[in-house]
């Protein structure tokens, strides 16, 4: 499904399960007990930030007109035509970090060796197998969902309507 990860702020408890699931998904073994022993260490692509009592898991928004893609000097960052995912081809990445400067959300980070960048790929391997992204599947409260813009807008409309009618 073409979609993006959406977060229900009220449901996120800040348990960081999505971070672990993300790192495991991006490990060689894809299995927690083996992944923790792998070197280099598997890295997460989603970061749970907290502010004023709210928690927000942040990951790449896969922008339509992605600033990171525009500034990338080597073409390592690309916006895929079909699924609309912003992907990083790390063999092309020279670690210049222009993308970090350009990204408004701070969700492109450097690998621990600082040589290449890492970011959310919307779990391409899982997507091919028809599975949800690891973070979505791991969230115990359902705070993370994969939704198309149309679905998201539909949910918003219903929420607005319910609230509007109640207030009257």
């Amino acid at each position: 499904m073409k979609g993006n990860i959406v977060v229900d702020l009220e449901k996120c408890l800040g348990c960081h399960s999505c971070e672990i699931a993300c790192a495991v998904e991006h490990s060689r073994s894809k299995e927690l007990f083996q992944a923790v022993a792998e070197r280099p260490r598997p890295q997460k692509r989603v970061i749970v930030e907290g502010c004023g009592g709210s928690n927000l898991p942040l990951q790449c928004r896969h922008c339509e007109d992605a600033p990171c893609v525009r500034v990338c000097p080597t073409g390592a960052l690309v916006k895929e035509e079909i699924e609309g995912v912003v992907l990083l081809h790390d063999h092309l990445c020279i670690g210049c970090k222009w993308c970090v400067l350009a990204c408004p959300f701070g969700v492109i980070v450097a690998a621990p060796d600082d040589k290449v960048m890492i970011k959310c790929d919307l779990c391409q391997e899982r997507a091919k197998a028809g599975r949800l992204p690891a973070c979505v599947e791991s969230c115990p409260t359902g705070a993370l969902q994969l939704a198309s813009t149309a679905q998201l807008a539909g949910t918003k409309r219903r929420e607005f309507l319910v609230e509007y009618l109640q207030d009257r």
Binding site: L32, A35, P112
Partner: peptide, 26 residues
């Protein structure tokens, strides 16, 4: 999937400054 911190024994609830967790990936 079950909680990774729990599976790895990395969650501590032994005092109320916590709960605390350790990042298993360094």
């Amino acid at each position: 999937p079950q909680c990774g911190f729990g599976l790895l024994g990395l969650c501590c609830r032994n005092c109320n400054m916590g709960p605390c967790r350790i990042d298993p990936f360094g």
